[in-house]
Computed example of a mutant assay.
Amino acid sequence: MVRLLRPLLRGTTYTRLLHLWVPMLVVSVWLFVMPSTPWVPALFLVPLGLLPAVRRGEGVQARQLLTPGETEPGISEGRSASWRDRLRTVLWLELRMLLGGATVFATVWLPVTAVELARCAWGGAPSGVPLLDRLPPGRAWALLTPLPLLALYGVVVGLGELITAGARRLLGPSAAERLAALEERTEQLLERTRIARELHDSIGHALTVAVVQAGAARAAGDPAFTDRALDAIEETGRAALADLERVLGVLREAERPVSARPTLADAGRLLESARASGAKVDAEVTGPVEAVPGPVSREGYRILQEALTNVLRHAGAVPVRVRVTVTGGTLALEVRNPLPGAAPGPGRGSGLRGIRERAALLGGTARTGPDDGDWQVRAELPAG
């Protein structure tokens, strides 16, 4: 019983009823002025529905009154972009007027019927209401008094559900709007993935350097070395904090302009950080690195950062060979280091997967794995 009466406690039931009543206000004024032409309002809806802005107004009103609080109601708030949208809007207006008329009739006559049945049950005189004024007095009418009210409940709830279903069908997003929404969702997912990679690469590199430096300083027992290690940890931590603030700024304010991400022009910072951690880095840069397009240069920086982080994390203070080459419209990055022992299989770890994802998004390739006794990370990105 409680479940049956639950719609009476929902505000949506009454906002939907209001939505059905609204168009009948205009119709009632017309019928008061010209009662002999009740069909004119329905005819007037045809040119009205062809106006592109009408669809937007109906969509906003339907979302607010038919589906309040729903994040994805399936009702568009856009203007009509095609003749198909205009015709759907016309059908929607006609449906809304039809169901609105049925609602007004039910909400007026069903309560009146219940009152008249109660009057007859108590021996009241006929009230002059058509059809109901012919009911003879009798106690038996008391048994039928609740029926019009139950019918009113069913009509109000049922017509509310029907008009909502009609709104989703006729005011729902067009094919172009669905495609645009899908593209926007895809862009959001790609942005979330990019931010996750940014945090993984930047924070992971900083933590790896800090751990390696702290361990080396404890093992060395040399105050001068400890000072150098603390300087390296401080510098790497500051850079990581700057990256973290930039990424969090993107998350907090989508429209906020953010500072430029590091590019291969800043690769010296990575190399010095790795050297300060004990790695013997042999770096060679060939070609016009400064001419590499921004997106490619930024992703190249992150690939190099992740490769050096993996060296420090898994191999420690070992010789590392870094080659950055720009030739013929291609940026080639290669990082090699001796294998510390049993090599992990290719494809393990989110960092290596992130390297391949970054290269693939730019139309390039990346290879990670053992090669002639070394561990190799090699990426080729289009730089034309």
Score class of each variant (00 low, 15 high):
Val211Pro: 02
Gln305Ala: 14
Leu230Ile: 07
Leu251Asn: 13
Glu161Asn: 11
Trp83Met: 12
Asp243Thr: 05
Ile303Glu: 01
Ala317Trp: 00
Ala254Gln: 12
Ala239Ser: 12
Val335Gln: 01
Gly69Ile: 14
Ser277Leu: 02
Leu270Ser: 01
Arg185Cys: 07
Arg86Met: 09
Gly345Asp: 10
Arg169Gln: 10
Val115Met: 06
Glu94Arg: 08
Val33Arg: 13
Gly329Glu: 11
Arg6Asn: 12
Trp92Lys: 03
Cys120Gln: 09
Ala279Thr: 02
Leu18Cys: 11
Leu43Ser: 12
Ile355Ser: 02
Gln376Leu: 15
Pro68Lys: 13
Val112Trp: 04
Val311Gly: 00
Glu290Leu: 15
Arg6Gln: 15
Leu152Trp: 08
Pro111Leu: 06
Gly154Arg: 12
Arg134Met: 10
Gly123Phe: 09
Arg84Lys: 08
Arg358Pro: 01
Asp266Asn: 14
Ala217Met: 03
Arg6Phe: 14
Gly11Asp: 13
Leu9Glu: 12
Val289Thr: 15
Gly78His: 12
Leu312Asp: 00
Pro136Lys: 06
Pro257Cys: 08
Thr145Tyr: 04
Leu51Trp: 05
Ser273Leu: 04
Ala142Gln: 10
Arg323Ser: 11
Val129Ser: 04
Arg321Tyr: 10
Arg192Gly: 07
Val377Phe: 03
Gly373Tyr: 12
Ala276Ile: 03
Ala106Ser: 13
Thr309His: 07
